[in-house]
Each structure stands twice: as C-alpha cells, then as structure tokens.
Design a protein around this nucleic acid. Structure first.
Lengths: 344, 344
DNA sequence: GATTTTGATGGTAGCGTTACCATATAATCT
DNA sequence: AGATTATATGGTAACGCTACCATCAAAATC
C-alpha cells in the first residue's frame, strides 16, 4: 500500500500531542502567520477567498488561539478584573452576572476577585490580579486599603466603580447616592404619617451612609429615632426575625422601621406573621434592595428598588465605550425607586 | 545644584511611564533577571542576602510581575476557568465563592464563564476561554454541547465537575446522586405516613433526575403521585405561591409535596400562611437546598441540605491536589442530609 | 500608458517572562 | 590536600502571538 504522494510532506502533519499553533494553520492554509492572525482579529482586511481558506484551516485543525501570547504581543489582554466583596449576596451577584455577560458579548473575559472583608488580603489580591494585565477594572464597592487604591491608580487602566458612594475616587462611576436613599425613605415614611422610627441594619459602610441620610432627615422633620439595631454583614432573615421583639418594645405606640436589606425586613414579616403582629398597623416596614422575597411576602414589602443587573450592564457599557476610546460621562446615576407595597 | 554623582547612571532610572519589568528590578538589585524570577517563585533557592536585596528592590520599584509573560514562558497560567450556568442562584454562587476563595489561597485566579442556557453561546464561550490556557477547569453542572465536551477533553487539563449527575463524564467529580436524593425524600415521606404526593419543580436536568428517583420510589412503595407542576428555571418564590391552590385541589385529602427548590417551598408556605392553610396538617412540604429562607420560615421548612460552599471547597482541594500531582479519588460524594423541621 | 493610490500580504522583531543548561563558588568527603 | 558533590547564580533561547514596516499587485488617476 504505497502512500499516495509521500514526496511532499503533509502540511497538516504535526507531532502528535503538540498543540496547534498559528503557524500550523498558516502552513495548512498556505498563508503566513500574520494573515491567520488577521483572519481572526480583523477579517475585513482580507480577501474573501483567503479568509475562507484560513477559517477552513482553523476549523479543520481545531485551532484555538493562545490568548496569553496574543495579549503579550498586543498589550491588550481582553480581560477585565472584577473585584467584588462577595457574590453570596443576591444584589452583587446580579450585578456581576449582568456585567460578565455583557463583557463576554464584547469579547472580554472576567477574572473574579473576591475581596472579602480583610483589607490585607484584598490588597494582596489586587496586586497579583493587576499582574494579569487586565484592560479594565470593575470595583463593586470601592477598594478599601489605601495601598490598593494607589496601585489601582498607578495601573492607569479604566476603572468603573459600581455600588459605590458618591465620592469621586474612581475613574468612572455607576451608582447612586446612598445618603439620598436614606433621605428619600425618611421622607416617604414621614409623608405617610409615621413619627417614630427604628433601624435594623448591617454595619457595612454603604448601609451606614443610608442610615445617616435617614437619621438626618427624620430629625429635620421632627420625627423620633427610638431604636437602632446594628449587626455585622451579611444580613440574614433570621436576624430580622430576632429583631421584631426589641423593635416592638421600643416602639410601643407603633412606628416605622428602615431595614438595610429586604432579608432583614422579610424576617420581621415572618416573625410578625408567626406572632400575630399586624403589619403595618402595629409596625410599618421598609426594606432595601427589592429582592424577590420582599415582593413575594404577604403582606408585600415596601422597599427601595436598586437594579443590580442594570448597574452591571451600565458598567459594562461604560467599560466597553471607554476601551473603544469613546467619550463617556464620568458618572452615571441609576434611578432608585421606592416601591410602595403593603408594609407601610 | 549639581547632581551627586552623574557619572554612573542611576540603576533605577527608567523612562517615565514605562512599566517596571523584571530586568529593571534585576538592575536595581545588581542580579540577573532569572534571579529575580527565582526570588518570587522559588525563594528557598536563593541566599538570604540576595533574596532580601531582590525583594527590597521589588518593593522599592513597585514591581508587579507580568503574569501573562510568565504564563507564556512557563506554560502554566495559574488560572482556572469556572463554567457556571448562572450565579444568580444562591447555591451556585456559594459554591463558586468558596471555590474562588480556596483557589486564590493557592495562588490561582478564577476566570468566570457564565454558560447560561444557550448551548451555542456556551460552546463559543468555552472555546475562547480555553484559549486563555487555564491550568484547570471547574464545571458547575456538566457542559451541555457535545462539541464543547470534545474540546474540553482535548484540552487535556484537570477538570472538576461539581453539582453534576453521577455520569462518569468528567475527569473528577464532586457531587452526589440526584436520583438518590429523590429516593431518600420519597422514603422519608412514606415513612412519615404520607401516601399521596405532589411535585413542584423546575425542569432543569438535575431537578428532573431527582424527580425520577422520587417518582420511582413513591410508586414502589405504593404511594400515589397526584400532581406535578413543572416550570422553567429559575425557581422563584412567586411560582411557589401560585402553586398552592392547584396542589390543594389535586390533594384534597392532604399529602406531601416535593419541591425542587427551597424557594418554591417558601412560596407555598407564604401562600399557606396568607390563606390559612395548616402546614403540614393539610399539606406537607419538603424543599431542596437548605437555603436560609427555609430555615427562617414559620413553620420551618423540612428540606434536603446540600452544602454548596462545601462542594466548592472540596472541588478546590481536588483541583490543587491534582495540579500538584497528588493522587486523588476520581469521585467524591458529599453527604446529603434530610433536615426534618416542621413542614412534614 | 505612466504614475499614483489603494489594498492585500509577508518578514522581522519584539512583548516579559521562565526553562534549560552552563558555570562558579562553597561545602563535604576520602 | 585533592576530588567530589551540592548550592547559587547567570546566559541564551524559547513561549506563541501581533506591531511595524516593507513589498507587491491591482485599481484608479491623469
């Protein structure tokens, strides 16, 4: 069985086990390596015929470009680093999910950095993550340590901050004023006639900002802040349940509570249901976050709606525009809405 | 103001705006580039003195190693790609969070691939993600498209699958038998005396496997499956609420429902509370997932506990062991436990 | 028809790091 | 003391790709 034409070596023969490289594709397609590169990155710069030839070779050989080599050569990694405190919180998770999807659409990959709550670790994480040469950075909440901030600034890459406070730290911001939310809730509750107030909140920075706005407004409008329960994040339903009794004790004539999370508010509602406390007659409740649970409770929870997914999407748009060199606003304020349901 | 010693050029002077490279550090420390590399990667192979000298230069210059270049040269990217259907589900989010944290501890970064539910897109995503040259792969649930599976296999890198069914597709598995869960729940309910059953479930693959196990066991034990509500993922509390009425209609003499998610079960409980249906007297409920909401409901939800975070951690351990070349079991079964609370 | 312009393709030289081997020095042995 | 081994460091050549400039053919202009 003689080989058909063993004189010319098969251009597609490679030592087995070796990965397919761009030069293999080039050889198979009868073009140069750079042409293969162009076929994949800037296809309109090639003739239809060569393009087809190259793509067919790519397909035939199952070529997967080594993006690290490409990144090194082009100095564009097409990676975005996202630094998120945690994704165990639905709102952050939604934002990250939307962001990742949108960036992926635009040809970017997202590297996940979970900052957690330890500053030292966060700092270390940020530094090594910067070593990945990301083209952009997403900060969910702002970086905590000063050293980390310095490094981020020095890196000189587009940085979008979402969920942050209003401080002008980051390059680009997509967010809202937390203090403004507290203020709006206070006004809303005062308008509905409540005079005595309580707070159930986790003590993270952004929640505290909302509380400050709430407190100030309540005082300005002559209301009385009777009780305040602060706890370490993450907020849980159980903590909410446990909070009802002390709240009722502090607010014997009734009043309204502002919770830093719908989870806490839902806990209040569950406990109220179990112990026959009438909501909102004996206690009005306003949550924060507009999670599904609030909407699904009976009575349905009045809350503040912040669309995490929307923020993620906007951040992605912001990022891609910026990477493409388009001019973009330095700050985008997403609408925050009080959703009046049955608990106030 | 004459410069102090302009004859010898300052070894730390660089054109401004240029990033610090390994050679800059080498020059500043008076060693070769490779020594700097060793100082960072294999510090025990250097003298204490040189190590100190190099690290001090690293510090002084604020050197951040370019991990892409390192990866290209060493053929180890220290990146893991995680392919997750969605992180908008608490259980996947927990698993991913735990995995990412653990891998980060071990010096790996995690690139996030959200597969979603579109096969074509998932496939494309997997291919480009493989171009990043990950050292390992985490699959949450198994890859859907055949082409994607082929590519994954060809990539020849350690692949850990969590949350999968029991099929021996992946390289390494951390999971449990979904059918076994259904069976256990059925047995549990039959043992407690229930004879008529209902199902409220999303129709994703793994939930369906649990249902199959449940159904088979119910039939084997002479029970009757009276009603079955299937819906598209994701499962929501609201869907649960809407399911109560039809369930009660189909189970007028009472019975027990198996829900594919605690969220659905919680909806049932909320609706029952709102309409005065006694649980479990008029209807017994068993959930799945052991989310916080189930534990916090009143009455507290009987459910199946699967620790997502534990799976993520185990997967990470598995991965790092494998990457280090340690022998590891091909399959790890995590315990699944029925938590008997107040709804059955 | 000669010249300019445009567009398609290729050659070469890095991108910043680490693997591999070579070399020099110090430590250990007979 | 001389030979051997272990340890510390360096030089050079990749890793696989794209930027940059050069080249060449074809199309458009005068």
């Amino acid at each position: 069985m003689p080989p058909k034409a063993s004189t010319t070596p098969d251009p597609e023969a490679r030592p087995p086990g070796r990965t397919v490289r761009i030069t293999d594709v080039a050889a198979a397609a009868g073009v140069s390596a750079i042409t293969v590169s162009r076929a994949l990155n800037t296809p309109d710069r090639l003739t239809k015929a060569t393009l087809r030839r190259v793509l067919s070779a790519v397909d035939r050989l199952g070529y997967v470009p080594n993006l690290m080599a490409g990144a090194l050569a082009s100095r564009r990694s097409r990676m975005i680093v996202a630094i998120v405190p945690t994704i165990a919180t639905p709102m952050y998770a939604d934002a990250l999910q939307a962001f990742t999807n949108a960036m992926s659409q635009a040809g970017y990959h997202v590297v996940l950095g979970l900052g957690g709550f330890d500053r030292r670790e966060e700092e270390q994480l940020i530094i090594t993550l910067l070593g990945r040469q990301p083209d952009g950075l997403l900060l969910v909440g702002s970086a905590q340590s000063a050293e980390a901030k310095k490094r981020l600034a020095e890196a000189g890459i587009p940085t979008v901050e979402i969920w942050g406070d209003a401080s002008p730290r980051a390059d680009l911001q997509v967010g809202f004023s937390h203090a403004g939310v507290g203020e709006a809730v206070a006004n809303h509750l005062c308008d509905r006639g409540y005079r005595s107030f309580g707070i159930v909140s986790s003590d993270d920075i952004r929640a505290m900002e909302r509380l400050d706005g709430f407190r100030r407004t309540v005082e300005r409008r002559g209301g009385r802040l009777a009780v305040q329960r602060l706890m370490a994040p993450p907020s849980t339903i159980m903590e909410g349940r446990r909070s009802l009794a002390p709240l009722l004790r502090a607010l014997p004539e009734g009043g309204a509570v502002f919770c830093s999370s719908d989870l806490l508010a839902a806990g209040l509602l569950i406990e109220a249901g179990a112990s026959g406390v009438a909501i909102p007659a004996e206690l009005a409740i306003c949550g924060f976050g507009d999670l599904e649970i609030g909407q699904a409770m009976k009575p349905a929870l009045t809350t503040v709606s912040v669309d995490g997914a929307e923020m993620g999407q906007l951040a992605a748009r912001c990022m891609t525009d910026r990477l493409a060199g388009n001019p973009i606003p330095r700050r985008i304020i997403v609408p925050v809405e009080i959703i009046q349901r049955e608990t106030t």
